[in-house]
Amino acid sequence: MEIMGLAVIIILLTLAGLFVVRFVILKPVQVKDTYTMKSLATDTLTALLRTNTGCNDENIRDLLMDCATNGPIRCGADSSCDYARAEITRIFENSLDEWKKRYRFVASTNTYDGLIVIGNCTGATLVEPAIQPLPTYNNLQVRLDICE
């Protein structure tokens, strides 16, 4: 009788052990997902900066550089900063928002941390950032974080 009880306990412990080994110790590492997210951030940022806009056909890279250095570019009634922010927001609404990706885009200089900030990753885990420095005297840097 007691042996039967012991056998039941051993079976239950073995099953519990199997679960622990299978789902905790042998948990697969998701390398490809991290690579895919980093690739998404890099590809998005590269394509974004190269995109020409309706503001004198300037690309977003040049608009951001003008914004960071208080340059002369005007886009109708808007400054280069406002126009770039609106264009980037529009592009992200049609891409990352549609794909239900959370993100945070930040353009910053060494004197101004939040020149342009779009999106937020509050409460989410940062997966991989894409960072692109641009050649201005105040070290303009654009960063796109994809988070989940």
Binding site: D43, T44, A47, R50, D57, I91, S95
Partner: peptide
């Protein structure tokens, strides 16, 4: 699956954002 890309118009010499 989605991949962001640039689409280039070689006549206008302009890039647009594509996917």
């Amino acid at each position: 699956g989605f991949i962001p890309i640039s689409i280039y118009d070689p006549i206008e010499r302009l890039f647009s954002f594509g996917v």
